[in-house]
Design a protein around this nucleic acid. Structure first.
Lengths: 342, 342
DNA sequence: GTGAAAGCGCTAACAG
DNA sequence: CTGTTAGCGCTTTCAC
């Protein structure tokens, strides 16, 4: 018969060393000097802590302090090149500020996002960076009302007084479209997603304005948004490409649409790709690897990460809330083989 | 002057309703009937809980119960197709068992992995599924000693008495190599990583045995493992391909090596890919999308997820530890365009 | 059927 | 300089 060895607590340590838990706690938290505990005692405690490889119970600490020092970065899909890049940068900034950060993917699914928000809020995380899926307004308001620090990212929610960092989608779509026009393409189609999200509307509007301004005809394919059925989407793209043979260039509204589109193009005819101009909104590691390499309108990931964290850390520090920060950044066109002059 | 509205606690609720916290707690946890609380009281409490949209403080609950009902799935890179697929399946099983699961990437970095293990252990997660990077033995032993449920995945650590779920890498490499031989390739090179990990050794051994058995010459390129310097790796591949013109097929030891290799091949000559036989260990969403589509040796993701969770849930339930479960599963060859007969 | 009260492990105000 | 102690919000035993 044996007992499960219980993890030692501060109290256990205090008993062994014949001192109070207060002293141990102070030393543990590096407040020994500040609290004027003698060098010898500090050394004795630290040695013992190291010896038994003591790990404090952070659940208890969090309950006591009311802070977990954990933040959450909640995006549509953390494996997406754009989000993972920003995530990585954010992680570094968090560590420097003695915060930890957890990543998770909403898959643009409201229900899943609600669950994630509650999961983390109930576990008392200190703050959120969220790419809000459509329909999540209520949960965001809930966090706001409860004065949980939240910064929106990639999309804003117009009716909400929340901080956000986004890019100028309209301008990016204009530049991308204009680039294809400048490269000599005349029948440029826009492939987008049938989702009532402001950033998608802006991209479409940018495309439309540029095409019409050049005296061309907009041609738009709107795919239903359902990650589960990529095959059906690809079939729709194939049908669209086949029945609109006049198209000589494609502008994809997101990087995952591009990837699906490239596959569709390949399935129609492996040579077809070399006859089309292609550009994608959002960059991807994949684009540099494809043959030909694929042009993209890239978002300013460094600046986004810096700004997001600056806003969030500020909210974490100052409990009284200032006016929401609303940031609209500019992206840059990355010209690769797929959009060169034909 | 206003006060930050504190989240209501069980005590607040009890006061408002003029009952004890015990009763509220019982109702909250669905134990009303079991504890024979009157239907009316249950209804009254539930109504009020809903009305104020009460969210329990799970940090407090965890401190009290000693369980967070959170598990961690710690892999090399969660954006890797193989790991994200398994992760998704595991997530479903967790939810069904009323556990939550957190995902994170070790990047095969020991220091990072140590920090992650401690981060989560200090926060009292209930269990771990870990793809162990080389050099992490000590931390895993630490968890084992503290009787934290751990299951290793994708790789075992021979000197450790830990549960694990892996595949037969030797057999998979043999099948993959044999498939290239059967397709008529004669000079098959193996591209691998210079990492002292058992699964890499097994893959190499499987390749070597099959090649020698067919009377051919093994040709192996070992790249240094450093995710940071993909460009340098790619340059090494290019040099290797250029200075070994006799090579007519390539067997990549991991899916990320394949992706890097495909890029190298493209950079040498966009047409070169069509002259080479290619197969990759581990499948990837990318392979189905590439032109040509890339063959792969795929791991049995469903079975892996099921077995991992079966083992972990069992450990969570039965505190006395049984003998470690050591599972070696078989993968399957997915034949695509890149390895067809030339 | 319901409530009082102890206690999970930690921090920090206060006392000495 | 160090210790006593209250209490974070919750669960659960025991009492009535």
């Amino acid at each position: 018969m044996f007992m499960k060895k219980k993890r030692p607590s501060l109290k256990d340590i205090a008993e062994v060393l014949n001192i109070s838990t207060t002293t141990v706690s102070f030393v543990l938290n590096g407040k020994g000097a500040e609290k004027k505990i003698s060098k010898e005692l500090i050394a004795r405690v630290e040695t013992y802590l190291k010896e038994i490889n003591y790990k404090p119970n952070l659940v208890a600490r969090s309950l006591r302090t009311g802070s977990t020092r954990v933040l959450v970065f909640m995006v549509e899909d953390i494996s997406n090149h754009f989000f993972s890049k920003v995530g990585r940068l954010i992680e570094d900034i968090c560590y420097k500020n003695d915060y930890r950060v957890l990543f998770c993917s909403t898959e643009n699914n409201v229900k899943r996002t609600q669950e994630l928000i509650h999961l983390f809020h109930e576990r008392q995380v200190d703050g959120f960076i969220i790419v809000p899926p459509p329909g999540i307004e209520k949960e965001i308001s809930y966090l706001l009302e409860n004065e949980v620090p939240v910064v929106l990212f990639d999309r804003k929610i117009p009716e909400l007084e929340a901080d956000y960092v986004i890019i100028n989608n309209y301008e990016g779509a204009k530049q991308s479209t204009q680039h294809l026009i400048d490269s000599g393409y005349k029948n440029i189609a826009f492939i987008t997603i049938d989702l009532d999200q402001i950033q998608m509307h802006d991209r479409e509007a940018g495309y439309r304005a540029t095409i019409e301004n050049a005296g061309f005809e907009p041609q738009i394919l709107k795919l239903p948004y359902n990650t589960s059925n990529v095959v059906a989407s690809r079939e729709k793209m194939k049908d669209f490409f086949k029945s609109n043979k006049n198209i000589d260039a494609l502008f994809f509204a997101t990087n995952y649409l591009s990837q699906s589109g490239l596959k569709a193009i390949h399935q129609i005819d492996p040579q077809l790709i070399n006859k089309l101009g292609i550009i994608s909104f959002d960059d991807s590691g994949f684009f540099e690897m494809y043959s030909p390499t694929i042009s993209a309108f890239a978002q300013p990931v460094d600046e986004m990460a810096n700004q997001l964290m600056k806003i969030l850390l500020n909210k974490l520090k100052n409990k009284e809330k200032p006016k929401p920060v609303k940031l609209v950044l500019e992206g840059t066109l990355v010209e690769r083989e797929s959009s060169s002059k034909k």
